[in-house]
C-alpha cells in the first residue's frame, strides 16, 4: 500500500463568534494515501469546507477557530487548492494566473510562463494564456483554476466543489479532465462534491459525512474499472449499486436532520 499523504485523527473544529460557538467538526478520522482520489459527500453545513481548510492549514492561524486533534500532511508546503468559485486574480492574464504558484516560489518569469502554457494545454486551453479571466466562460475559468493548482507541482490537490456551479455538459467534460490529469500526474486528490455520481466516478474511495457537528459516517471503496470516464463509468452495475447505497444513507441523514429541527 502507498504511503500516507494525509492523516486526520480525532479532529474537532469549532468557530467562535460574538453570537456564540458553532461546532463544525467532531472527532473526524481518516487517511488519504499517495496517488489516491478520495471524494467526500455530505449535506451542506456538515463541515466539508472546514475539513479541507483544516488540511490546507488555513485554520491554524485564525483566532476565532478552536481546533483539537491531529491533522498531518506529509510535505504540508506542497498543496494545491481549487475552490468552488475560481478565485482567479481578475487583473492578471490567464497565463499569469496559472503561473502564480511558481511566481511565489521565485521561478523566473520566462520559465514559469513556459510551464504555465504547458499546463494550459493539458486542460485544453491552449492559446488562451493572454486573455483575462472575465473573457472566459465559467467552465474555462475553472479549468484555469485547476491548471493553477497543478502548475507548481504540489503533491496534494484539495478541491471544494470545484464543478458545483457548472452546467451538466461542462461538468462531465471537466470530470474527464480531472481523471486524465490524475492518470498522467498521479497526484493525490481530496475532493468535496455534492454530486453523488461525481463522487463515485472520480473517487477510489467515497467518504460520506453527516451530522452537526460533522462526522465521517462511512466509507465506500469504489471498484469501478480504470480508466474511467464520466459517461462510461455510469453504465457499470457497480456504479448503480454504490449510488443507491450512498443515496439511501444521505436520505436517512437528511430525514434525521429534519426531525431534529422539528
Amino acid at each position: 500500500m502507498a504511503a500516507e499523504r494525509v492523516s486526520v485523527e480525532g479532529l474537532s473544529v469549532s468557530y467562535l463568534s460574538p453570537t456564540g460557538r458553532v461546532d463544525a467538526l467532531q472527532d473526524v478520522s481518516f487517511k488519504v494515501h499517495d496517488g489516491e482520489i478520495v471524494t467526500i459527500v455530505g449535506p451542506s453545513g456538515c463541515g466539508k469546507t472546514t475539513l479541507l481548510n483544516a488540511i490546507a492549514g488555513l485554520l491554524s492561524f485564525r483566532k476565532d477557530v478552536l481546533m483539537r486533534g491531529i491533522v498531518h500532511v506529509r510535505d504540508a508546503g506542497s498543496i494545491g487548492y481549487v475552490f468552488q468559485r475560481d478565485a482567479l486574480l481578475p487583473w492578471r492574464t490567464v497565463a499569469e494566473n496559472v503561473a502564480l504558484g511558481l511566481e511565489v516560489r521565485g521561478v523566473p518569469r520566462e520559465k514559469r510562463m513556459g510551464i504555465a502554457s504547458r499546463f494550459l494545454r493539458m486542460v485544453g486551453l491552449e492559446g488562451y494564456g493572454g486573455k483575462y479571466p472575465h473573457e472566459l466562460s465559467a467552465g474555462m475559468r475553472q479549468r484555469v483554476a485547476l491548471a493553477r493548482a497543478l502548475a507548481y507541482d504540489p503533491e496534494l490537490i484539495l478541491m471544494d466543489e470545484p464543478l458545483g456551479s457548472l452546467d451538466a455538459q461542462t461538468r462531465a467534460s471537466l470530470q474527464d479532465e480531472i481523471l486524465m490529469v490524475h492518470e498522467r500526474t498521479r497526484k493525490t486528490i481530496l475532493m468535496v462534491t455534492h454530486d453523488i455520481a461525481e463522487a463515485i466516478i472520480l473517487g477510489d474511495r467515497v467518504l460520506v459525512m453527516g451530522g452537526r457537528p460533522g462526522r465521517v459516517n462511512s466509507e465506500y471503496r469504489v471498484e469501478l474499472p480504470k480508466p474511467r470516464s464520466s459517461h462510461g463509468s455510469r453504465l457499470e452495475p457497480e456504479f448503480s449499486r454504490l449510488y443507491r447505497a450512498i443515496w439511501d444513507e444521505l436520505k436517512e441523514e437528511m430525514r434525521a436532520r429534519q426531525t431534529v429541527r422539528q
Binding site: A87, E103, V104, Y152
Partner: peptide, 30 residues
Amino acid sequence: IDPDILNVMRVMGASRLQTMRIVILPSVAS
C-alpha cells in the same frame, strides 16, 4: 478582496510582502 484569493496565496506559501504586491496593491489600484 475575495477571501478565497487570499487563501490561494496562503496555500501557495506566499509571504506577506508577496500578497501585498500581487493581490492587495493591484486591487487597491483598480
